Amino acid sequence: MSEAGHDLHALFPDHGPALHALKLGSSNFRQLADEHHDLQSRIQRVEAGLAAVADDQLEDLKKRRLFTLDEIAALIAIEEEA
Results as ranks from 00 to 15, higher is better:
residue 46 V to D: 04
residue 52 A to K: 09
residue 79 E to S: 08
residue 79 E to W: 01
residue 31 Q to S: 12
residue 23 K to I: 06
residue 17 P to D: 07
residue 59 E to R: 13
residue 78 I to W: 08
residue 64 R to S: 00
residue 54 A to T: 13
residue 49 G to M: 11
residue 59 E to K: 08
residue 56 D to N: 07
residue 79 E to V: 06
residue 44 Q to L: 14
residue 1 M to L: 06
residue 29 F to K: 12
residue 16 G to D: 15
residue 34 D to L: 10
residue 39 L to N: 01
residue 50 L to I: 10
residue 21 A to E: 03
residue 66 L to K: 02
residue 10 A to S: 14
residue 58 L to Y: 08
residue 8 L to I: 09
residue 44 Q to G: 09
residue 53 V to W: 13
residue 68 T to W: 00
residue 21 A to D: 05
residue 48 A to M: 13
residue 18 A to C: 03
residue 82 A to T: 01
residue 80 E to R: 05
residue 47 E to T: 09
residue 47 E to I: 02
residue 3 E to F: 09
residue 46 V to S: 06
residue 46 V to H: 07
residue 11 L to F: 12
residue 17 P to A: 13
residue 76 I to A: 07
residue 11 L to Q: 13
residue 21 A to V: 08
residue 16 G to S: 14
residue 16 G to F: 15
residue 44 Q to R: 11
residue 14 D to F: 10
residue 28 N to L: 10
residue 60 D to A: 03
residue 77 A to T: 13
residue 11 L to V: 14
residue 43 I to C: 01
residue 12 F to N: 08
residue 21 A to M: 03
residue 70 D to I: 04
residue 71 E to G: 00
residue 73 A to N: 14
residue 51 A to R: 15
residue 35 E to G: 00
residue 34 D to A: 12
residue 3 E to R: 07
residue 10 A to C: 15
residue 38 D to V: 08
residue 65 R to S: 03
residue 4 A to H: 12
residue 73 A to P: 12
residue 28 N to T: 05
residue 23 K to F: 12
residue 77 A to C: 11
residue 75 L to A: 10
residue 6 H to L: 15
residue 26 S to R: 00
residue 40 Q to P: 01
residue 5 G to E: 15
residue 59 E to N: 09
residue 15 H to N: 11
residue 18 A to D: 05
residue 65 R to G: 01
residue 61 L to K: 03
residue 10 A to R: 13
residue 67 F to I: 07
